[in-house]
Simulated assay, not measured.
Amino acid sequence: MYPNLNAELARKGWSKKMLAEKLGVRYATILDKLNGKYPLTLNECKDVQDALQTDMPIDELFFTS
Rank of each mutant, 00 (worst) to 15 (best):
M1P: 06
E21Q: 07
N35T: 00
V25G: 05
L61R: 03
F62E: 02
P57F: 07
T29I: 12
P3W: 05
L5G: 02
N6P: 14
L40N: 03
N4G: 07
T64G: 11
A51L: 04
R26S: 14
K46I: 15
L23V: 05
I58P: 06
M56V: 10
N4F: 05
L19W: 02
L34I: 02
L42P: 14
M1W: 03
L42E: 14
A28W: 08
A20Q: 01
L61S: 04
T54V: 09
K16A: 12
E60Q: 10
G24A: 03
D32A: 15
L23W: 05
E44V: 01
M1N: 04
Y27P: 09
W14C: 01
N6Q: 14
L40R: 05
M18A: 09
A51T: 00
Y38S: 13
D32K: 15
P3Y: 04
E44H: 07
P39S: 04
A28H: 10
F63Y: 15
T29E: 08
D59Q: 12
L9M: 02
A10Q: 09
D47K: 13
G13S: 05
S65M: 15
P3R: 08
T41C: 01
K46E: 13
Y2P: 01
P57E: 07
R11A: 07
P39D: 03
L42A: 13
R11V: 05
